[in-house]
Design a protein around this nucleic acid. Structure first.
Lengths: 205, 205
DNA sequence: AGATCTGTCTACCATATGGTAAGTGACTAA
DNA sequence: TTAGTCACTTACCATATGGTAGACAGATCT
């Protein structure tokens, strides 16, 4: 596989391929995405895709790697926020929602990862492991210091993760519940989830 | 499509096909499931499947319908439990976990539904609409009577749903967090989620 | 016994898919 | 000038997929 991205300004061919692949993997799913369809959308021949990414699986790996980096960057930033326990949790949740507004495909991919067994999911989770470790450690410390109710840190993390991802990606269900996927609705969902999490986590002295 | 199920004792061919299809749709996903593979697993020719279900899409619809009925039955039962607000919430959550232990594929299908856009997802949600309505109404009544913290009922429902489904179906993530999908782990996750929900929902007078 | 119906099978088929092989034109280095 | 590389293309190919057409054995009905 070629290693340089040419212009590297985000509009290079491999970069555009990654964008399109991410979008399609996140919505249609990996198996349901065909290289032909991808190529057609990019107005490029399928062989161009196979030139940059020698197989569909390699393409998936590339999408995963790039997405994991972006995701990590966005979350590590807000996880480093100063302040007491709850403020930091809130900051992280807010940044995930910001991400969902700007790059919904990224969250969609996260969702999709659960379905793709190893090795794809393993790769993804492994790339995010440091983040998970830090988050878990943070929660534990906050519980030790009495700022938060005591829970199993990693299960708590999973619960928070599931809730946030669900609120952001369950489009069908949302629609059935009368919530159109608008920006206004996103704000309401964020308020709701923060409210829920605060009641569940913060200790009232 | 033929309408009778032959022996109707659960081992009739169409019934076995539905079982296998449900299992595969729930784990591999709909698109990634081929009729050939399905047939091979059943030790039957593909044409037998197409005899009972004239197309793959019809098969999916049949799986959805049957699953929706089973799901509704299981949940309606526990939703009808007597008792104060929290006891009923707990009863429903417990019954979902019981379902997850006995028929994990059913929960997997629920998960998969989110990915399949309309018309499949629509059909599924529509079939479960009465259940959602009842649950939503129940939550609202409990909040009105002051047994529960006030929240947007439908968003609360979505949050609970997401958390429970996530805790039950995020196998990859669980494994990465060091939680093997054993029966013991299931019990721990149930305890954790009930604890979280109680803190979030129940008003402390 | 003969006709009909049921459930399953064998024999195909058109299309789509991921992937290989071999070009082609533009630009670059010697 | 020319040899070579780069980015991308056209031309194929083997396989898998959902689906059609029709045969065949056994049961049921008349």
């Amino acid at each position: 596989m070629p290693t340089t991205d040419g212009k590297a300004d985000g509009t290079s061919t491999p970069s555009r391929i990654l964008d399109a692949a991410l979008a399609s993997f996140a919505t249609r799913g990996y198996e349901a995405t065909s290289l032909d369809a991808l190529a057609a959308g990019l107005e490029v021949r399928k062989q161009t895709i196979l030139y940059w990414f020698p197989s569909k699986e390699v393409l998936l790996d590339a999408v995963i790697d790039r997405s994991a980096v972006e995701l990590s960057a966005a979350l590590e930033g807000s996880l480093a926020t100063a302040g007491t326990g709850w403020v930091r949790v809130e900051a992280v949740v807010r940044s995930v929602f910001r991400l969902a507004a700007r790059q919904p495909e990224l969250l969609g991919l996260v969702r999709e990862m659960g379905r793709l067994g190893p090795p794809a999911a393993t790769r993804f989770v492994a790339a995010l492991e440091p983040l998970v470790g830090r988050a878990s450690g943070f929660l534990e410390a906050e519980m030790d210091s009495g700022h938060m109710r005591r829970h199993e840190p990693r299960l708590l993390l999973l619960a928070i993760y599931s809730t946030v991802i669900g609120m952001l990606t369950e489009v069908e269900l949302l629609r059935a519940l009368g919530e159109e996927p608008t920006a206004r609705s996103l704000v309401r969902r964020r308020a709701e989830i923060l409210d829920l999490l605060r009641s569940a986590l913060v200790t009232v002295p």
